[in-house]
């Protein structure tokens, strides 16, 4: 028995295997729920209800999906060019720092001018955080997986220092948190009385723009060519290093928008727990979306739904919400397996 590659898998295979992966994931999750002593069917129902069973639940899911769309896009864009950006977490935090530094009163402008400036500043900070590893990669061949990954810890310690020092809120009763941003620096709610803020709208726009960039423009063509075959791209005359730098700016900027959106939209200030691993979860989101920018939106909502649903299920059924992490991990592994199987068949 051996595995053989299929040169052109059919649509049924390409859709069927990922669907099978999600089904398998659901089975694993329900099995775990059973182990925890709950009725698996009820747990599954509670997760779905908790994620999308009411207007409040659905909006909570979309709120949680917002930063994941940004980090998912950041990873998807970079991975397309085979620039292995594992540092979306660091870029997110630097984006948040830029937002807080400029948004807590330093620039006392109306929202219409302040918000765009904050977004651009955040993107610049995030881009910088990825440009350094990219430069080390193109100039000295340093593996960006290592540098971007380690920079996550550097960035978090840097934020921790800022929150204990220069950015510490004097009114914060000693807690390590920044001053809240001024009202003009808050992203408005999408509708009055809803918790959902315009960060979500911005994320959707970003996904569409990235999609257009990748499929319709010369820059996107270059990014895809560099990612698929670097040697052929170089031979054809593409400026490979410039392409990587552009990709890094875009990717780092997108991840930083997650930080901007969380500070200006959701939280209002900066703490060291601003992101419960959005940068890392963005990798799962991007992989589940097969690096497709519009798929990122769907995958981010799915992942956010599992987190939000599991939280609510945990309260109702007494099953630990860690089940959400396990579910996502198995979804990722099952998806990677499914992708492999899509283009392989078993021969005896």
């Amino acid at each position: 028995m051996r595995l053989e590659p299929i040169p052109a898998p059919s649509l049924a295979r390409r859709a069927g295997f990922p669907a099978l992966a999600l089904g398998l994931t659901a089975l694993i999750a329900m099995g775990l729920a059973a182990l925890a002593g709950a009725a698996p069917g009820e747990v599954a129902w509670l997760v779905v209800k908790g994620a999308a069973g009411s207007k409040f639940a659905l909006l909570e899911t979309l709120n949680r999906a917002t930063p994941l769309i940004f980090t998912g896009l950041a990873v998807a864009v970079a991975f397309r060019a085979k620039l292995w950006n594992i540092g979306a977490e660091a870029q997110l935090y630097l984006g948040a720092v830029a937002t807080v530094v400029l948004g807590t009163g330093l620039l006392d402008w109306p929202a219409a001018t302040l918000l765009p400036v904050l977004a651009v500043a955040a993107m610049a900070a995030g881009a910088l955080a990825l440009l350094v590893p990219t430069f080390l990669k193109t100039r000295f061949g340093v593996d960006e997986v290592v540098t971007t990954l380690l920079l996550n810890f550097v960035a978090l310690l840097f934020v921790s220092y800022l929150l204990e020092g220069p950015l510490k809120d004097p009114m914060g009763l000693g807690w390590p948190k920044s001053e809240p941003v001024i009202d003009a620096a808050r992203l408005p709610r999408i509708a009055e009385g809803l918790r959902l803020h315009w960060g979500f709208g911005l994320a959707l726009i970003a996904a569409v723009l990235v999609w257009i960039l990748q499929t319709r423009t010369i820059w996107g063509f270059e990014i895809r060519a560099v990612g698929l075959n670097l040697k052929a791209a170089r031979f054809a005359g593409m400026p490979v290093n410039a392409v990587l730098v552009r990709t890094a700016i875009l990717s780092g900027g997108l991840a930083a928008l997650a930080g901007f959106s969380e500070v200006a939209g959701a939280k209002g200030n900066l703490t060291t727990d601003l992101s419960p691993g959005f940068g890392y979860t963005g990798i799962i989101v991007a992989m589940l979306a097969l690096l497709h920018p519009l798929g990122v939106v769907v995958a981010a909502i799915f992942v956010a739904g599992i987190f939000v649903g599991a939280d609510s299920m945990s309260r109702a059924a007494g099953v630990p919400s860690f089940i959400a992490d396990i579910t996502l991990a198995s979804a990722l592994l099952a998806m990677i397996l499914a992708l492999g199987l899509t283009s392989l068949r078993i021969r005896r």
Partner: peptide
């Protein structure tokens, strides 16, 4: 060639940045 690109994309690999393949940056 780039194996996963289609024939169209491979045919324009060397000329993509010039008119008429690129119109102000749009393919």
């Amino acid at each position: 060639t780039v194996g996963d690109f289609d024939l169209t994309e491979n045919a324009m690999m060397e000329l993509y940045s010039r008119w008429p393949f690129s119109r102000a940056g749009w393919i």
